[in-house]
Amino acid sequence: MADLNVTIGDLKLKNPVTTASGTFAYGEEFKEFMDPGKLGGIFVKGLTLHNREGNPYPRMAETASGMLNSVGLQNKGVDHFIEEIFPRIKQFNTQIIANVNGSTIEDYIRVAEKLNGLGEMHAIELNISCPNVKEGGMAFGINPRSAREATEAVRKVYNKTLIVKLSPNVTDIAGMARIVEDAGADAVSLVNTFLGMAIDAEIRHPILSTVTGGLSGPCIKPLALRMVYDVYKAVSIPVIGMGGIMNAIDAIEFMLAGATAIQIGTANFTDPSVSLKVIDGITDYCKRHGVENIVELVGGLE
């Protein structure tokens, strides 16, 4: 059997299959469907400094081969996560990675500081790409200067593996990746959702309460794949790829485009056990192609 171990900075994953923030809650919600301990890692639901109730309903609209959401980072705050949730989910035999959000640079710093002290967590994902919050979020990730500032500020207070999650809503994502690499990121993850909109023509009204939201699902896969490919060529840090992965072959495509690991997102909603099927499928692919070590596939286009 192929060696599936991969390394992102100092973060060791037993396989490249992880679940994307906001699509896997804290993992516990999936226990009846699959064993979260088989995953390479879990990127948990986005954390903020304080409790957030998120945006009003409706915050979801189905689209052709995907969905829009505008949940708006609903969570009970980083302290609640550290005190109540993490002690339970750290029992899973997998890497738990927090997703860090803020309305200001100061927020990002304070959340990252709190997580820096968490012994059994070895990495955070800095989310400068959430399209569904009025302040902060994606605003940091679409402006080169604030992307640099946010990354540098968190780098100063977080001394384990720092992954920066990039927004696809930019003209030059490779340039943005170089900026956060230069600012101290150990890895980048991409893509977050594409800003989109859905309208109910019968009532002449936007479907989402926030008018716009983030598009995800298989409809974005070709766009995401191109971005992973461009970023892989532009930086020397590892790339974590995501965007519409529904099965093992999709995952392999992202790895061939340059991803060291992948995140499964929206597919978790339609098949909560899909991530384990992806691991099995990758193993099968390696066998069929005589791949002994999964890292051979990373950027392995011929």
């Binding site: 699509t23 809650a25 919600e29 999936f30 998120g54 309903y57 915050r59 909603f269």
Partner: peptide, 22 residues
């Protein structure tokens, strides 16, 4: 309500409680 997952992962189908929580 419209739902994506149905088991508490996506947080899309919320309703507001009397206490102002989703």
């Amino acid at each position: 309500h419209m739902m994506a997952c149905g088991f508490g992962a996506c947080l899309c189908c919320v309703t507001e409680t009397a206490e102002g929580k989703n």
